[in-house]
């Protein structure tokens, strides 16, 4: 074993708790949306990202977003296909950030619906708090994607959390 392999990887120790927290948050967010898909559909429509003739896309998004959140979150928590799940979550967060930035740019008064009726730590209409919150989660997802899933995983890939 080379001396380089014994060197602890900076931030590598962080990926296990980050994986569990981020996965748990996405499961929670998805379940809360699935409990009241109509409310999330209202939020999707309020973003004004879909043209009026694309109602079917908005309806599908009202179900596809939470189900993908639950799937990716669960895979992240159990540590199966962890990096792929982190990639999916990173892509979703990038899309959410773009949507929020678009809402802020257009000055729309929209509630997030991100965690159903539990909006923590950001309350009220969408603002910079939501942008910061999602950016922090995006950094966490990218860290897992870069460093690997850490300990307590089903994945057989070499542990990179040391």
């Amino acid at each position: 074993m080379s001396s380089a392999s014994k060197t602890p990887r900076p931030l590598g120790w962080l990926t296990t708790p980050l994986r569990l927290i981020l996965g748990g948050l996405f499961i929670f967010a998805g379940v809360m949306k699935l409990r009241d898909p109509q409310s999330f559909a209202f939020s999707v429509m309020a973003f004004d990202l879909f043209p009026s003739h694309a109602d079917h896309a908005a309806k599908l998004a009202a179900f596809a977003v939470p189900w993908t959140e639950v799937l990716a979150g669960a895979l992240l928590v159990v540590g199966l296909w962890s990096r792929a799940a982190a990639l999916v979550i990173a892509l979703m967060l990038a899309a959410f950030i773009a949507g929020i930035a678009s809402v802020l740019y257009r000055g729309l008064n929209v509630t997030c619906g991100c965690f159903g009726k539990f909006e923590v730590p950001c309350t009220g209409p969408i603002g910079t708090c939501h942008l910061v919150r999602n950016s922090i989660m995006l950094v966490a997802a990218l860290l897992i994607l870069w460093k690997g899933p850490g300990a307590l995983t089903i994945d057989r890939e070499p542990a990179k959390h040391r």
Binding site: L34, Q38, A41, V44, A58, K59, A64, W67, T68, V88
Partner: peptide, 21 residues
């Protein structure tokens, strides 16, 4: 595969529970 699975389950769920836009 994760994204496709999410979309497929969502499609089945949307047939069971309709939402209005």
């Amino acid at each position: 595969v994760i994204i496709l699975a999410g979309i497929l389950i969502a499609g089945a769920d949307s047939l069971r529970r309709s939402v209005k836009t």
